[in-house]
Amino acid sequence: MLGAILVESLTVLTIDDNDSIRLSLASFLEDLGYNVLDADCGEAGIEIIKEQSIDIILTDTHMPGLSGIDVLRFAKENKPDTPVIIISGAGEIKFAVEALRAGAWDYITKPIEDLNFLSYTIEKVLKRVSLIKENRQKSRELKETNVRLKDTIEELKTTQSQLVESEKMASLGYMVKGVAHEINTPLGVCMTSISYVNEQAKSISVLNDSHNMKLSDFVEFTKNTMDLTGIIYESLQTINNLIIDFKQLSVENLDDNKKSFILNDIISSAILLISSSYPNMEIDINIVEDIYEVNSFPEVFSLIFMKLTENAIIHGFNRRQSGRLNVDIYKEDNYLFISFKNNGETIDDEIINKIFDPFFTQNKKTGQV
């Protein structure tokens, strides 16, 4: 049974041209607590449907004028959420079937010998209505949740893009700051040296014009000038190397250098080239013997493993006389994996996320990562 409070809030419309049946249904339903409206024909029933808020409709099939099927179709079109139960005679099953196909929620045959069956049928239909409304509400809530989630995802994507741009700008600022710092030192040396050479040239010119220049003055000027120009040249070479490193960050026109090569040979050559620069350090190099031919950019691979080797020696083998480098190359599915390991010191946690930033360094003297 439906709860008393729920029943009392529901309105049932009964439509039947038989006064005794209509009044009997109304009396029974009112005793159950329903609010009951009744009509003696289809036309009167439709007028009530237009004007009143109805929770469930009980209608006979055959009536003078509009039939129960006509009422059903009107309710279906104008009040689609209002359930209609068809009441048909025992010999009118075909009309009940027609009504169900037209959208009736259930049907009852008359004479109704047990009115409790009517109560059960109404409760069953109302439970279906309640379930449908609950599902619709949940669907609306789910849809609203999905919309909010979609908006949240878009906001997160926007925030992520902004964070990525912020990180890029931060990295760019750090890179520019690092490049500026590295260039400022040799550039300052150049400016100071040139300024000093200029002052010495003015002094020697004054001595020469006054015929007071001695041979020792000229020799000293020449020596100082040669020393300072040597310093200037080294500083300019340092600046040039920094610019070359900076240009190597660009990937433009790499397609011009793409070709097939033996990966093992490129890696071996790069590691041996760098390790040979440290003759006083014993370095054990172990590279996988399997041969892998790839079509890519050999200069890029060479540069990568030169830098990895250099950093391993300078930082991993810091203050050590020996070290071991292991390079493992293996293939899984359509991917080639390269593992570069050394048995040196590990990277501190506070800088692990910065090691791929351009020009990041812990060693200002060597300029290495």
Rank of each mutant, 00 (worst) to 15 (best):
S235D: 05
S235N: 12
L236I: 13
L236F: 13
T238A: 14
T238R: 15
T238V: 14
L242A: 08
L242Y: 08
I243R: 08
I244T: 11
D245N: 15
F246A: 13
F246H: 10
F246V: 11
K247W: 03
Q248W: 08
Q248V: 02
L249Q: 10
S250G: 12
S250N: 13
V251I: 13
V251D: 11
E252D: 15
E252I: 15
N253C: 07
N253K: 12
N253I: 11
N253W: 09
L254S: 07
L254H: 05
D255T: 12
D255A: 11
N257W: 00
N257M: 01
K258Q: 06
K259Q: 11
F261S: 01
F261Y: 02
F261I: 01
L263E: 06
L263W: 03
N264P: 06
I266C: 04
I266L: 02
I267M: 01
I267K: 02
S268N: 15
S268F: 10
S269W: 00
S269I: 05
A270F: 03
A270W: 02
I271F: 05
L272Y: 13
L273W: 06
L273R: 10
I274V: 15
I274T: 12
S275R: 07
S275C: 09
S275G: 09
S276N: 14
S276P: 03
S276L: 02
S276T: 05
S277P: 08
S277N: 15
P279R: 01
N280L: 09
N280M: 09
N280R: 10
M281C: 10
E282Y: 13
E282G: 13
E282D: 15
E282N: 15
I283L: 08
I283C: 04
I283K: 04
I285C: 07
I285T: 11
I287W: 03
I287M: 01
V288F: 07
V288Q: 06
D290E: 14
I291G: 12
V294W: 00
V294T: 08
V294P: 05
F297T: 04
F297V: 06
P298E: 01
E299P: 00
V300Y: 03
V300D: 04
V300Q: 03
V300C: 00
F301H: 00
F301Y: 03
S302E: 07
L303G: 03
L303C: 00
L303I: 01
I304E: 02
M306R: 13
M306W: 00
M306A: 06
M306E: 13
K307L: 02
K307A: 06
L308M: 08
L308K: 14
T309N: 04
T309P: 03
E310W: 00
E310R: 09
E310D: 08
E310L: 08
N311A: 06
A312M: 09
A312G: 11
I313Q: 09
I313L: 13
I314Q: 10
H315R: 01
H315S: 04
F317Y: 12
F317D: 09
F317A: 11
N318W: 04
N318T: 00
N318P: 00
R319Y: 11
R319T: 12
R319E: 15
R319A: 12
R320S: 14
R320M: 14
Q321V: 14
Q321M: 13
S322T: 07
S322W: 05
S322V: 07
G323C: 10
G323M: 10
N326T: 10
D328M: 08
D328C: 06
D328P: 00
D328S: 09
I329G: 04
I329Q: 01
I329R: 03
Y330A: 02
Y330L: 04
K331V: 07
